[in-house]
């Protein structure tokens, strides 16, 4: 029961996060509901994999991004938008931002540390966080773009038959 409540919370807050971050990139309001839907699916799936199945963040993020990419393809003609315009913002709640800036913080601490032991500790933190961030982002990008290239015809003709009349 507790897990179910946590999943519902995850769905709700990741949808809000996707809508907010999509607005920064001037995503039209008509596409935001798809951002929210995809983010809710992807983030909650990653949450379940990491919390209940103890899957590593790299694998979990890649699988979740792949699911987002696959679901975005049939939605694109419906939304009359290229799939990346709502699947990329839906990925934003899963971008490992904390790892990214902790890597840079590690670098700052490396440079300001005195002694080999402290330096090596912060060097380790920089590398660990930096590598995790890069590999998570790479896995997510592979996951979300693979369906776009597999279903090229649908992905690149989603805005077909759309007129301003």
């Amino acid at each position: 029961m507790e897990l179910l409540i946590e999943i519902i919370q995850d769905i709700f807050f990741s949808a809000i996060a996707a809508i907010g971050f999509a607005s920064i990139s001037n995503t039209p309001f008509s596409a935001m509901k798809y951002c929210a839907f995809l983010a809710a699916i992807g983030h909650s799936l990653r949450f379940v994999m990491m919390e209940s199945m103890e899957v590593h963040i790299i694998v979990a993020a890649a699988i979740a991004a792949f699911v987002i990419g696959v679901v975005a393809i049939p939605l694109a003609p419906k939304a009359k938008c290229p799939p990346e315009t709502f699947s990329y913002p839906a990925l934003l709640p899963m971008i490992p931002g904390m790892y990214a800036y902790r890597a840079v913080q590690g670098l700052v601490m490396c440079l300001s540390s005195s002694g080999e032991e402290a330096f090596m500790h912060y060097f380790y933190l920089m590398n660990y966080n930096g590598l995790t961030c890069i590999i998570v982002v790479a896995g997510m990008v592979i996951g979300v773009t693979m369906p776009i290239f597999v279903f090229k015809r649908i992905a690149f003709s989603a805005t077909q038959n759309v007129t301003n009349d």
Binding site: F21, P89, I95, A138, V141, V144, T145
Partner: peptide, 11 residues
């Protein structure tokens, strides 16, 4: 965090 440029770079 510049999420979209990271994703576009990968693409």
């Amino acid at each position: 965090i510049p999420g979209i440029p990271y994703i576009n770079a990968g693409s």
